[in-house]
């Protein structure tokens, strides 16, 4: 014969929630400041390889990106690794024009600091990367950065 005890009126008062919006706004501003909108839509699959000795890429405005990987829509584009520049697939011969346009869009004083970040999928073969590097050399974009994921220790067992 369970009987509900009559609840005693407790002395605890309702929590004042009037500062809740302020807290939320604080979080909101934090995310608004730290957010970086993606400027390109990836159409190739990229899982960067692991590395321990990484450097941060300073000055995002002075970085131009080259993506290399298998197309995401492999049904339509096949599974051969492709190069993506800006929002579309590109060929090796398009790289000099890309480098030139990236240079045009920056201040003249900043041009020599442009870094080309190579975002390459870990499973592709070096051939295409070598070709891209040769084109970059010819176009005078000497500063490059191999994009990697920072890990504490590389799992060498997975390499073979």
């Amino acid at each position: 014969m369970a009987r509900f005890k009559r609840e005693k009126k407790s002395g605890v008062q309702a929590i004042n929630t009037s500062s809740l919006p302020d807290i939320i706004f604080m979080l909101l501003f934090f995310f608004m400041v730290t957010t970086v909108m993606r400027e390109v839509t990836l159409i190739v699959k990229i899982t960067p390889p692991e590395a321990t000795e990484v450097e941060k890429l300073a000055k995002k405005s002075l970085v131009s990106y080259i993506y290399i990987g298998e197309p995401k829509r492999s049904a339509a584009y096949g599974s051969k690794p492709r190069i993506q520049l800006n929002d579309q697939f590109a060929r090796i011969d398009d790289i000099p024009a890309f480098v030139a346009s990236e240079r045009q869009s920056r201040d003249e004083a900043d041009r020599r600091f442009i870094t080309t970040s190579l975002k390459v999928d870990q499973n592709i073969r070096m051939g295409i990367v070598t070709d891209v590097k040769q084109e970059l050399r010819k176009s005078g974009a000497f500063k490059i950065n191999y994009s990697t994921r920072k890990v504490g220790k590389i799992n060498f067992g997975k390499l073979y």
Binding site: F31, K143, I144, Y146
Partner: peptide, 19 residues
Amino acid sequence: FLVTTTMDVDTGISRKLPP
């Protein structure tokens, strides 16, 4: 903003290509 934010800082190994 939570959804659109990408927190990952670009990291990588920097190299200089020869001319």
